[in-house]
């Protein structure tokens, strides 16, 4: 008899635990449901206050962000950095993208007489081409993926025309030109159509193809270092 009581006790204990757990689990949802309308109103007001507070906080933070943004925008450092970037872009130290045209120089094979030296781009005509392109509004030029900048050297060395030391003897040679806008690119294209440069190239057995203006052209950055030899910064007077 005693043994049976022990098992019954064990079972009742288990039932007690189950009941308690069940009670615990259902009790909470009961608590939530027993709020009367006034309590709900109070809670609602509290929640609204909290919301207003949070919204205010968000607004002040956003104002702060805006202020920081304008500060950053107006700061001297930012202006300097922007100017530096502009100057670098102008000097050709940054990769440039924009609307423009490509000019392809290909040798005219039927005029090449066997035994004579192959086609040859004269540095004079190349310089003339660059000058003309610049005159017509080109903002960036590359010849055979070599960026042309103000200090670019174009000269003939031992019968080969070199641009900054890069020999231009593999044809076709591609000249990429970027203009400031699509209108400018169109103008550039039209002016190149009536230019006399193709005739000059023709004398050297080269034909010049001018592509239609494209929306996006990539011009690489200048690959060598710019060696500044004869420039010195102006000493500031009166400043620090």
């Amino acid at each position: 008899m005693k043994k049976s009581y022990i098992s019954i006790t064990f079972v009742t204990m288990l039932i007690g635990i189950m009941l308690a757990v069940q009670f615990n689990s259902t009790k909470q949802s009961d608590d939530r449901d027993t709020r009367d309308s006034w309590e709900i109103r109070e809670d609602y007001t509290e929640a609204q206050e909290l919301q207003t507070k949070l919204l205010q906080e968000i607004r002040t933070n956003e104002e702060k962000i805006a202020q920081y943004e304008t500060d950053r925008h107006n700061s001297k450092e930012q202006v300097f950095l922007e100017t530096l970037d502009e100057l670098r872009a102008e000097a050709g130290l940054l990769e440039t993208e924009g609307p423009g045209i490509t000019i392809k120089l290909t040798p005219i094979t039927q005029y090449i007489i066997p035994g004579e030296s192959g086609p040859f781009v004269s540095s004079d005509i190349l310089r003339k081409l660059i000058n003309e392109l610049n005159m017509y509004g080109a903002t960036a030029i590359s010849i055979a993926e070599q960026r042309v900048i103000n200090t670019t050297v174009i000269r003939e060395v031992a019968g080969v025309t070199k641009i900054d030391g890069y020999p231009l003897n593999t044809f076709p040679i591609e000249v990429k030109v970027i203009a400031s806008s699509e209108d400018q690119a169109n103008k550039l294209y039209n002016r190149m159509q009536i230019s006399s440069i193709p005739d000059d190239f023709f004398i050297d057995n080269l034909s010049m193809e001018i592509s239609e203006p494209k929306e996006k052209l990539m011009i690489p950055k200048y690959q060598n270092d710019i060696d500044v030899k004869k420039m010195e910064p102006v000493k500031e007077e009166g400043g620090k």
Partner: peptide
């Protein structure tokens, strides 16, 4: 003894505050 077991079970369950 069974009643005691039930009480012990209830108090244990309530004190541990288990919720499913």
């Amino acid at each position: 003894l069974p009643v005691l077991g039930l009480l012990i079970g209830l108090t244990l369950g309530l004190l541990t505050d288990i919720q499913i």
